[in-house]
Design a protein around this nucleic acid. Structure first.
Lengths: 210, 210
DNA sequence: GTCTATAACAAGATAGAC
DNA sequence: GTCTATCTTGTTATAGAC
């Protein structure tokens, strides 16, 4: 029966969704090795056996979580608008990345942990998905530099600085909050942080002559 | 006998040193939860029981490793020379941090992982050791800004950007190498990266008018 | 101080009832 | 699809010989 099939598919989707969500938060906080299937099950409101029914092994569950997160990550870099003036485009990109870091802190932490471990499970993602897209954006930066709209800079290191500088607030929010003297990073705090990053990346430290 | 005592102390120090070194590399690569005492023992060239003889539990071993690493980390921030011109002082600080990241990549990764997990085991370090020292440096930056030697910036976010931008290369060296199209980050590569970070932080992206 | 052997426990994964 | 019970393995930590 088609209706019964559809109902099963809905149940499956709902259960998988709850598992993936619970696992993402736990993996972000304590890593894959530091998280047990039992913890995921408890947070998702089901038994460990049920988690294994949907994801044969913890490794497979981890790959599913990582894949979800990488899809989102890739989508962000698309956000650099090639038709805007460079300063506006870069400022908007920085703010977009900072906003995503605030809205989905778990995603940023999961990618960071995977990269810290050498990123063996994202080699293909890097070479197939990220690099071609990044190359496009690098040519854009290069064009802006050549035409004098930006100082001549190495776009790759520019991206590194922007990624590192924005993800810092999601990955190390506890330490950032401690230094800033607040109990946690609010949205307003993140906006101020984004302003600072934009300001530093665009203008640097040196006072303008004149 | 005093000589026998001294010999024992030397043996103890040598063994502890080998264990701490092995553990640091493993913790950096796979985290504390992802590392077994057996692996540490194998890398240190001894049995797991011997590791337990020197460090009663894995948790205690981890704390010892973390404590070592934090001591080094704190030492770096001292490097900002208050008597140099601000640009030189900051450039030297960035290069020093980048050099340490290259020389001791494991240290950077261990701190990053601890912070990702909320840094519960470094709260005291943050408030007792880091913040007072950082406050001194922040007043320095503020003074430079007020006297017009630097653009007015929030020193705290400046430090965040510098920390994030330099540690990026140690923490995510695999991904950085992939984007840069090299098989691994050599010392020369790290120097180029340091140049880029210094250039961006000091000058920003906008072309100078005139 | 260092080892082998082993106790004690935790975790991943599966079987089979419902 | 979901659960409880259980198998199996791997890990921490200790005991005791050397």
């Amino acid at each position: 029966m088609a209706a019964a099939q559809a109902a099963k598919a809905r149940i499956r989707q709902a259960a998988e969704g709850r598992i993936l969500h619970a696992a993402a938060e736990l993996f972000a906080d304590t890593g894959s090795a530091g998280t047990t299937v039992g913890q995921v099950a408890a947070r998702a409101g089901m038994s460990a056996a049920t988690v294994h029914y949907y994801f044969r092994s913890k490794a497979i569950l981890y790959e599913a979580v990582l894949s979800d997160v990488l899809r989102r990550w890739l989508h962000e870099i698309e956000q650099i608008d090639e038709r805007q003036p460079p300063e506006d485009a870069i400022a908007a990109y920085v703010r977009a990345k900072m906003h995503v870091s605030y809205a989905h802190p778990a995603a940023s932490r999961i990618v960071a942990q995977e990269m810290l471990r050498g990123g063996s499970r994202m080699r293909r993602f890097l070479s197939v998905d990220l690099l071609p897209l990044l190359d496009r954006k690098l040519r854009l930066i290069e064009g802006w530099s050549r035409s004098g709209l930006l100082r001549p800079v190495d776009g790759r290191h520019l991206f590194f600085l922007i990624w590192a500088g924005t993800e810092f607030y999601a990955n190390f929010s506890v330490e950032a909050a401690a230094v800033l003297g607040v109990s946690e990073l609010t949205e307003a705090e993140m906006r101020r942080a984004a302003d600072s990053v934009v300001d530093l990346v665009l203008n640097g430290l040196q006072p303008r002559p004149g």
